[in-house]
Structures are given as structure tokens and as C-alpha cells.
């Protein structure tokens, strides 16, 4: 199963709007909550109340700061999860066939029953999208909520990844990026969505929408009615109230 499908019928993925993400971490725990009881083994935590807690998360939100050439410094929140790459190196390195990319929709998954926990796929992924579960010894990664998006037990409007459904600002979008007419494809086209680390030649499906330009609106300055210091309040009042 380690070979990649030549093509996939669809390219399901996420489009993440960096102009809108406030870094609230809602998608992080929603993802943890769903996947803790969903696809595969639960996402374990080690030393959860101890001095050195750590556990598996499939989605993590960074924050970066930049100094643009003009204007004030900016901060951008940056969610990071599996990008469901078309040329997924994590799949081809896998010795067991546990990692695979679905021909149907392009979702990259780990078959946990076959995974030996060698960790090589995580090494092969440029984006840090894979984390080994220390309790179960198998590799975990974003499933694109494959057990939600087709789930007949959920209302049709809930057949969305947990992170997308919960994102309070609507910064996360889910859809088929192979269909140029899909809402996500149109967003990518309009907002010049981009792929991460193109030099890795992984051809990610997920896209990021860049922050919009920031700064002053460039509205024409206000023009004083009169020179108040010269006319006094009375002159100003005349001009002002003459208007009603």
C-alpha cells in the first residue's frame, strides 16, 4: 500500500485563513476530543498532571511575529496539521504499508493495525504532521476526520472535520481542492492561497490564505468646518447648526 495512487478522484483538504485565525486553539482541542474517541487508538497523554506533561495532538497552532518593511510589527497565528500531500513522502517510506493515501479522496491515513511504530514516516514529513502515540506505539496523524465527513450518523451539515466545525472565526475551510468550482478552490484563487515548503516537492493539498495588508485605510483627512480658535465657539456653532 505504500505506493501512492497515480491520481486521486478528489483532493479533499483544508484551507486555512491566516488573516482570520485568532489563535484560539479551539481546533486543537476539538481535534483531540474527536480523535480521542474516533479513528484508531485514543490520543494518549503522558504525565498529564505531572512535571512534564506531553501527549499526541494532530493539530497545533503556532504564532509568529514579523516586521514588515513598513508599519508596525505583526503577529500571525499559524495552525499546522497534515496537508494530505499529493506526493506524500510519509507514505512511500513506510515499510509496512500502514501509511497510505486513499485513491478515492486523497486522504493520507495510517492503518494502525499494521503500523510498527518505526517513526520513519514522521521523519519523512516536512511539516511535523505526524506524532507517535507513546502509549500505543503507533503513528497518529490528522485523518481529515474521515470518520466524520462521510458519517451517515451525523447530520449532513456536521459532516465536516471537527476542527472546521468548531473554529469560531470560520478560519478553517474544508472541501475538494481538485474541483476548481468548489468553495475552497475559489477562496484559494481569490485570496492567492499557497502551499507550504514547495521546495520539498510534496505538493500539499491544503492551502493557506495569506494575511491581508495591514495598516491605515488611507481615508482623506477631515476638513475643519471653521478655524475654531479664530472664530470661537460661536462661529463653530453657526456653521455646525446651520446644517440641520
Amino acid at each position: 500500500m505504500t505506493a501512492l495512487p497515480e491520481t486521486t478522484a478528489r483532493k479533499l483538504g483544508l484551507v486555512i485563513d491566516l488573516d482570520t485565525c485568532v489563535g484560539c486553539q479551539a481546533c486543537v482541542t476539538a481535534c483531540k476530543g474527536w480523535n480521542d474517541q474516533g479513528y484508531g487508538v485514543p490520543l494518549s497523554d503522558q504525565d498529564p498532571y505531572g512535571a512534564d506533561p506531553s501527549g499526541v495532538f494532530l493539530n497545533r497552532v503556532h504564532a509568529y511575529q514579523m516586521q514588515p518593511p513598513e508599519g508596525a510589527s505583526v503577529v500571525v497565528n499559524f495552525p499546522r496539521s497534515c496537508l494530505h500531500c499529493e506526493v506524500a513522502p510519509c507514505v512511500t517510506v513506510c515499510p509496512t504499508g500502514a501509511s497510505f493515501k486513499r485513491a478515492e479522496d486523497g486522504i493520507v491515513l495510517v492503518n494502525e493495525d499494521a503500523c510498527i511504530g518505526c517513526g520513519l514516516c514522521a521523519w519523512a514529513c516536512p511539516y511535523g504532521a505526524r506524532e507517535m502515540d507513546a502509549a500505543a506505539g503507533v503513528m497518529k496523524k490528522c485523518t481529515l476526520c474521515v470518520d466524520r465527513i462521510y458519517n451517515d450518523n451525523l447530520a449532513p451539515e456536521d459532516r465536516l472535520p471537527a476542527c472546521v466545525r468548531t473554529c469560531p472565526t470560520g478560519a478553517r475551510h474544508f472541501g475538494d481542492l481538485s474541483d476548481p468550482g468548489s468553495a475552497v478552490s475559489r477562496l484559494v484563487a481569490e485570496r492567492e492561497g499557497y502551499a507550504l515548503m514547495p521546495e520539498m516537492e510534496t505538493k500539499p493539498v491544503n492551502r493557506y490564505l495569506p494575511p491581508r495588508r495591514k495598516g491605515a485605510a488611507g481615508v482623506a483627512p477631515l476638513v475643519p468646518l471653521v478655524d475654531v480658535q479664530a472664530t470661537g465657539l460661536a462661529g463653530w456653532l453657526d456653521r455646525m447648526l446651520g446644517k440641520i
Binding site: S54, R60, H62, Y64, M66, Q67, V75, F78, A122, M132
Partner: peptide, 30 residues
């Protein structure tokens, strides 16, 4: 970090905050 985030369009990015304050598999392994 610029190509990894695509944020170099705004200026050279630097870490402001990490997504988790402790270690995780990635930081330990890689």
C-alpha cells in the same frame, strides 16, 4: 521558516509563541 509558513511575504518570521509549552514527540525526536 519563511517558506515553511509562507509568511516571508510579511517580513522575516520569528517564533512568537510555540503551540505547546512543553515538549512533544516532534521536539523530542526531531
Amino acid at each position: 521558516l519563511g517558506s515553511a509558513t509562507g509568511l516571508d511575504r510579511l517580513g522575516a518570521p520569528a517564533v512568537f509563541e510555540l503551540p505547546h509549552s512543553g515538549p512533544n514527540y516532534l521536539t523530542r525526536e526531531m
